[in-house]
Design a protein around this nucleic acid. Sequence first.
DNA 1: AGATTACTTAGCTTTTGCGCTAAGTGTTGT
DNA 2: ACAACACTTAGCGCAAAAGCTAAGTAATCT
Lengths: 112, 112
Amino acid sequence: MDHYLDQLDGIFQALADPTRRAVLARLGKGPASISDLAEPFDMALPSFMKHIHFLEGSGLIQTRKQGRVRTCIIEKQRFQAVEAWLSQQRSLWEGRTDRLEQFVTKAQAEGD
Amino acid sequence: MDHYLDQLDGIFQALADPTRRAVLARLGKGPASISDLAEPFDMALPSFMKHIHFLEGSGLIQTRKQGRVRTCIIEKQRFQAVEAWLSQQRSLWEGRTDRLEQFVTKAQAEGD
DNA sequence: AGATTACTTAGCTTTTGCGCTAAGTGTTGT
DNA sequence: ACAACACTTAGCGCAAAAGCTAAGTAATCT
């Protein structure tokens, strides 16, 4: 299950930017096109696109182009890497070694 | 409760570096001095100190100097900002608006 | 066909992150 | 007193992040 903790650098880095977190919040409600996502931000489109690419590179979103429109969707499973890391960290405070395993097992059972 | 989500930039940025996550993992087991913390890393001390300062600046650790030794401890409450954000994000997927509040209330009740 | 739309690519600038060395400060051990 | 220890400060260099403008491509509309 090590792979849960593998790409944390990129994930946390992606989450460190408020524009990108806002995009994730928007995508949490459902898919959206680049234009729709970019609209609230006072930013040139190429600049905004870099955030989208960063999010896609970290695996937190997926995108697909149909015609001239690229649609973005959130990748919920990716957030489990963060939850797993938090859980592992917590297990250290609590002096347990079984919590990460519990979390992962539970998450899988829930089909999340 | 907005303050839970306020300093996420710094917190996520702090977590985006493997050296810093390793330091947090070490501190999860208990306090340690700068020298102790630095020992496993093949890095000049001033470079390592920057990581410590970053962690302290983000509020994830606290430090105190006694004599010539600076001791670091982890700030567990700070991790709640991450949990709160995750919980909020999840509430979007699930179309609820009450989950963050539930989480914060529960965390406080546990005195965590 | 031609115009408009929705990105996309290329390239530039500024700021920040992360490493280094060299030298400095204050504390503790002998 | 002096040496050793545990940071601390100052400053440098390189790479990546985060913004911009200008120009390009492909799809869709009229």
